[in-house]
Design a protein around this nucleic acid. Sequence first.
DNA 1: TTGCACAATGGTAACGTTAACATTTGGTCG
DNA 2: CGACCAAATGTTAACGTTACCATTGTGCAA
Lengths: 334, 334
Amino acid sequence: MAAVKKSVSVKDVARLAGVSEQTVSRTVHDSPSVRPETKERVRAAMRELGYRPNFAGRSLRRGKFKTVGVAMFNITGTGNLDRMEGFAAAADKHGYAITLTKVDGHPYTLESASSRMSALPVDGMVVIMNRMPADFGTFEPLPGMQTVLVTMLEHPLCSTVDNDQFDCSRQVVEYLLGRGHKTVHFISCPERSLSGMRREEGWRETLRAHGIEPPRLVRGDWTAQSGYAAGQALADDPTCTAIYASNDAMAYGCICGLESRGKHVPEDVSVAGVDDSLGDIVPDRRLTTVRFDNKRVGMWAVDKIAGADGGASGVEHMLIPGVLVEGDTVRDLR
Amino acid sequence: MAAVKKSVSVKDVARLAGVSEQTVSRTVHDSPSVRPETKERVRAAMRELGYRPNFAGRSLRRGKFKTVGVAMFNITGTGNLDRMEGFAAAADKHGYAITLTKVDGHPYTLESASSRMSALPVDGMVVIMNRMPADFGTFEPLPGMQTVLVTMLEHPLCSTVDNDQFDCSRQVVEYLLGRGHKTVHFISCPERSLSGMRREEGWRETLRAHGIEPPRLVRGDWTAQSGYAAGQALADDPTCTAIYASNDAMAYGCICGLESRGKHVPEDVSVAGVDDSLGDIVPDRRLTTVRFDNKRVGMWAVDKIAGADGGASGVEHMLIPGVLVEGDTVRDLR
DNA sequence: TTGCACAATGGTAACGTTAACATTTGGTCG
DNA sequence: CGACCAAATGTTAACGTTACCATTGTGCAA
């Protein structure tokens, strides 16, 4: 029985087609300087042998892998799927592939992500940051390895990209003020969350920019439970006509909490969230919220690496705004 | 100033350390036949030059990439993130990397996934199937490319792995019957969903196995809205004391629908779902549901490829059972 | 002293591809 | 008719790594 051929190389194809290896290579790349009938003969030989170009030989020769590495400390995380959709789409566009790696978060450093990637066949890397790495200030990307960080922080040596959390709060607050609300109450998140704190800043500063002193915020923990408690707490506050929660789960919890105290949404109190994560889960509500374009974030990161290709491009910082989605949980007081 | 060195190779390290390239290679692989002091000298040279082994050269020499390709038709999909967590974990364990590719679903064939992968540096591939590919019956994996399909269907040439949808329904139905309910009503999903139909079969056959003729099912469309409508419809049925919905969104919608008709859950009617996807979104309920171990599904797939390494292992089919999670939406009638 | 085993290291070739240059062929123009 | 040109194809070498085999040196038994 036919022994398993290790792998079919240009040499084998060349021999069968009766041409040189170079002509095979040229045919693979559809060079115009090969006669059509020769090409056809070579293609026939390739089909017969089941030839497929060897990536390693090619990369070795070219010195490029046409691959972008993605390092994640946590794979499970809001928006990661959409980001990956973006990575894949952009990679596709440039003829690149994506190599995914989970990085052990102990210690939580960019260095560990970088060294993990250094042995893989990638031309550049993207790191998804969920927290503040210990070496954020001192990190230097590997020479020749373009590195993009998914974070809202700016870095002197690496390009960065993320959702614009500040602007997101600005949009929500201005939307609510625009509807005639005198102030906007806020349900925050745990203080360790970078993006959550930025949302908080956005809320606070936008109110101040409108000459409104921010009311006391209620600290939540991302869960609907904490939103529920916050809703109950705010139900008794007569100045509270509008609540902005740092995510949709808390916003929905808040609505339930308000209603448990006899307050109706949006008749008595308006509520808005962030994330557009309720989707088809809640039947009787369309929450007013902000939808982030994580796919675009992902595309930007990979574009930056694959798009530059040879020509090294400079360090850039990109914040991508979300879009406010109007639901039925906000009342127009005007 | 210093011109950008193309890349540092063993040759450069060898020259600096005053040894042969072979000794450098042996040091990289920590071979016992290199004197400790020589190793140290070589390591120092590597550090000084910033040497990192070139993946292409290595793969070319070895004929292995130590990488598993993952082909997805849709990146966004329930459980994909957990599956990826599994891919990454298993790959890590074996010293493998994961290469992710989005496959254009036009046409929706295994062949298109396979040919997309064939040019990439992978030793084996995993295809996540969401629907029935047109060529499922006739597909042959590339020679030498171990292929695992994530699907509950069995394939003669490819190993397969997925959640056990039938068993999931069996668990829920037997749980409800065990609590004294005389029958279990069902909210189904659109008929095009493979896994959804399997859940439906599980519900039907388990009831029959207990000598119960399945009641008329209510067809839903995965959304809470459709669950809401189903709940309202079933609220008037006096025989209906237990409802099983094919996903959590419909289950939650159903609960809201029942309550809108004055029925209480679980006092009047018990409700169970599937997916454990409500998480922290709903504040006042802990839905009884089934949690699938998608991470394990992902690990199994990559284990199958990376674990076999050289020795070709046979075709296997694996169904991984979910775990029933008790919430507070089911009443014990006994 | 010779012979031999063993530890440490070096030299060479090959993996598959393709850029750069070399060669052949057929045709055109002065 | 020879010089020259372009199109088509071939030859060579190199990318970085490592398996295989060869070589050198050292200690020990015969």
